[in-house]
């Protein structure tokens, strides 16, 4: 079963995220990927945090060759409509069907604050453009010789407030053609359930994003990000643990157990600590 088929099944889906190397040495990327063998799909980020890295498309192709099911992340930040459509066709030619379409971190958040923010299309427009390409024409109305097929995902942030606006946006993305969602990081399953009950939809799968807290320092970094809300109980556990990493692994595992009771799946963002994902999952 491929990822698109799994979306139609009742399976609790598990995906994770890998970031490409900064440079041409892909050995560590491949090592981290090995820890994700048993997952349903693996996202490859697109110059995340607006920092320059090797391209998502190249790394997705390598993953595909090694027997993984990649999800190509595409932001609308760096490319205009010509390049975006071209990237989608390239993905299809390379056998990559899954794409996650997101707005991306603004250049001002990254290594090149004065880089030109492109945003020629917005997320809705690119989702629709991908659906248009599938019908054999492009945004200019020109005929394609051979048309692509996609499984399209998008992002949703349970912590965005006013929350109802984010719910509305999710609905809009579904109308535009999104088939699955991966959320920003959550730490509180009960709180997420309230949000999930508002957004659950039989036609799409929504995977709750979770992050491995590896140290008190990393937790402090996370807390500074807008909308990140770590329950006091979890903070205390990390702060008082003699081995914060293994405590973090336990916390992730417990969160997944809770999510299994209602969520469609999880999306794990281990941020370089992917080697611990098998451990998180084995504690289930």
């Amino acid at each position: 079963m491929n990822f698109k088929e799994k979306l139609k099944s009742n399976k609790f889906l598990i995906t994770a995220e890998l970031f490409p190397p900064k440079g041409t040495d892909i050995s560590s990327f491949l090592m981290r990927a090995e820890s994700l063998r048993d997952l349903d799909a693996v996202n490859v980020t697109d110059n995340q945090r607006a920092s320059m890295r090797t391209g998502s498309l190249a790394m997705c192709k390598i993953l595909l060759e090694k027997g993984f099911e990649p999800i190509l992340q595409i932001t609308v930040r760096d490319r205009n409509r010509i390049a975006l459509q071209s990237e989608l066709l390239s993905a299809s030619v390379l056998g990559i069907e899954n794409v996650l379409i997101i707005s991306g971190d603004h250049p001002s958040a990254g290594e090149y604050p004065s880089a030109k923010p492109v945003y020629d299309l917005d997320v809705l427009q690119l989702i629709k453009a991908a659906r248009t390409l599938e019908t054999g024409i492009d945004l200019a109305g020109k005929k394609l010789k051979g048309s692509p097929k996609f499984c399209i995902g998008a992002a949703v942030n349970p912590a965005a407030t006013p929350n109802d606006l984010q719910v509305l946006m999710l609905k809009k993305k579904i109308l535009a053609g999104a088939e699955f969602f991966q959320t920003q990081t959550i730490f509180d399953a009960a709180q997420y359930k309230t949000f999930f009950d508002k957004i659950k939809n039989p036609n799409v799968k929504i995977l709750a994003g979770i992050t491995l807290i590896k140290s008190p320092k990393f937790m402090q970094f996370l807390q500074k990000l807008p909308g990140v809300n770590i329950p006091i109980k979890i903070q205390e556990r990390i702060n008082s643990a003699s081995d914060p990493l293994s405590e973090g692994i336990k916390i992730c595992s417990e969160l997944i157990s809770d999510l299994k009771t209602f969520s469609d799946g999880v999306h794990i963002m281990a941020i370089g600590m992917e080697e611990h994902i098998p451990n998180i999952l084995s504690l289930q």
Binding site: P117, D122, V123, L124, T161, P162, P226, G227
Partner: peptide, 19 residues
């Protein structure tokens, strides 16, 4: 800042812009 014409990104918290 992202010139999104069809609706917001996921970055607003308490009504403020993530950027």
């Amino acid at each position: 800042p992202k010139s999104l014409v069809n609706g917001p990104c996921g970055g607003f918290v308490n009504g403020k812009c993530e950027i």
